[in-house]
Design a protein around this nucleic acid. Structure first.
Length: 437
RNA sequence: CGGGACGUGGCGCAGCCCGGUAGCGUACUUGCAUGGGGUGCAAGGGGUCGCAAGUUCGAAUCUUGUCGUCCCGACCA
């Protein structure tokens, strides 16, 4: 069997299956292109979310929550913004159902037509800025630094699991500032937060940059982004930060009195990143045996698998495993002892490799006699016997090593795939044959 | 929206060309053995063949329509 790294996005679907159910709920067209995130996948998302959330708070932001529905008229206020999103919006037109007089099920009550249709948010700039109008009067109200964790819907013509689903989870930061300089500074600062998160938590090296006019966020003056290189040689946008200038302030009439007692429009930014990051993780690090998750965000960092014959051995191993587990938990390591008797050790090995657990410890009777355990790391598939003495500290250090090694492996791959060329012909050829930047 | 492939137990698939009692793998249930890399043997349960119309004595199979999924393209802050 070839152990070649899978090179196409669809080949990753096997590993995605462990995290989500693809293709939506109940095979129903109305939820086509949505995804159902399984507990294991959601735990991964929660870890990423928590780490990002902490970084937002450390940079002075607070969380809030705004409505899912956006009145249609709000969306028509910023011309470029409408242009960019109008084609992919889901629209609510009625507010009630009734029993079908012709029998069988329910129908939309034609009497219950909304006077103004509601748009299910594809992003929240409009509803947030219509709110900010009431919140901002003076320079003393600025800066306003708010983030929202939410789901949004974009009715894309063609969805791609994780990378572009019809409904997705994300966070969107929306800030208001007194000066252009301060807003630009915020835009850049949040891009840096994303870059730091990608590199330190996801072990994903990224390149920061500014988008061209055609790729710019609808309504932004400048869009900054981070781009990561996947194992198939293709780049993936992993986060964006927009300098919105005064576009939304003008559209929603958000003004403040400055220190000179003059009315001025506020300066804005917005920035977001989504469950697409999970897709980035999979495509950047996984191999033919499944996911490889960086220890810092892996839902499970260590799994302990007992190998025994008979109750006598089982008791000995159980006791030792629980002792080690307690030490690891003290060190803050996320560990599971899988003593489920329904599955055999070999089955468990394969299962946790598929799930991407960074470190596996196997404990058998033979090991205990020798005072060792077998430690296997997921990223290199390397196995070795390690002394029981100080095993918890050893593993704690190993998790750091894995995090570090994963980043440097991805970075080496990325750097090998940066090619300089001055000719268009060669550029096209490189993209076809080698990929990369 | 243009091109291509596909839709059959929970999951993955064969059967369709050439119409005739719906099959395989896996998962699930039970029992015995096994237990250091996805155990072996045996016995079980589970399917309106996406939907609709048509052809036919008879349709998973042929025809038409329709819905959906995936891939390529266009589009994609």
């Amino acid at each position: 069997m070839s152990k070649e790294i899978k090179s196409r996005q669809e080949d990753y679907s096997q590993w995605y299956n462990d995290l989500v159910i693809k293709g939506g709920l109940a095979d129903h067209s109305a939820v086509r292109g949505c995804m159902v995130i399984k507990p294991h996948g959601f735990a991964l998302w929660e870890n990423m979310r928590d780490a990002l959330d902490k970084m937002f708070k450390d940079t002075g932001h607070v969380n809030a929550y705004f409505p899912l529905f956006i009145p249609k008229s709000f969306l028509s206020k910023e011309a470029a913004h409408v242009e960019g999103f109008a084609k992919e919006c889901a629209v609510v037109t009625h507010y009630r159902l009734k029993n079908d007089p012709n029998g069988g099920g329910v129908i939309v009550d034609p009497e219950a037509k909304l006077e103004e249709e509601l748009i299910i948010r594809p992003t929240s700039e409009t509803i947030i800025w219509s709110t900010y109008k009431d919140w901002i009067q003076s320079y003393r109200d600025l800066p306003l630094l708010i983030n929202q964790w939410a789901n949004v819907v974009r009715w894309e013509m063609r969805t791609r699991l994780f990378l572009r689903t019809a409904e997705f989870l994300w966070q969107e930061g929306h800030t208001a500032h007194a000066t252009s300089e301060e807003a630009v500074e915020e835009t850049v600062k949040m891009l840096d937060v994303y870059a730091t998160f990608a590199e330190e938590f996801m072990a994903l090296p990224v390149i920061k940059g500014v988008k061209t006019e055609s790729e710019r966020f609808a309504g932004a003056q400048d869009t900054y982004c981070i781009e990561a290189l996947m194992q198939d040689g293709k780049a993936l946008q992993a986060g964006t930060s927009h300098f919105l200038a005064q576009n939304f302030a003008k559209a929603f009439d958000v003004k403040f009195l400055n220190k000179e007692n003059k009315l001025e429009y506020v300066w804005a930014t917005s920035w977001g990143t989504s469950t697409r990051l999970i897709g980035a993780l999979v495509m950047a690090h996984s191999d033919d045996d499944g996911l490889i998750l960086p220890p810092k965000i892996a839902p499970l960092q260590v799994v302990i698998v007992p190998i025994y014959k008979g109750d006598e051995q089982k008791e000995l191993i159980d006791a030792k495993a629980k002792e080690i587990m307690a030490h690891l938990k003290n060190l803050g390591v996320r560990v599971k002892y899988d003593n489920n008797e329904n599955n055999r050790p070999g089955w468990k090995f394969a299962e946790y490799e598929l799930k991407g657990v960074p470190v596996r410890m196997a404990i058998g009777a033979r090991d205990l006699e020798k005072g060792v355990v077998e430690i296997a790391r997921r990223d290199t598939k390397e196995k070795k016997a390690v002394k029981l003495d100080g095993i918890a500290q050893y593993i704690d250090g190993l998790l750091l090593d894995i995090q570090h090694d994963m980043f440097h492996k991805a970075k080496a791959y990325r750097d090998e795939h940066i090619t300089k060329t001055d000719s268009w012909e060669e550029f096209e050829k490189l993209l076809d044959e080698k990929g990369g930047f």
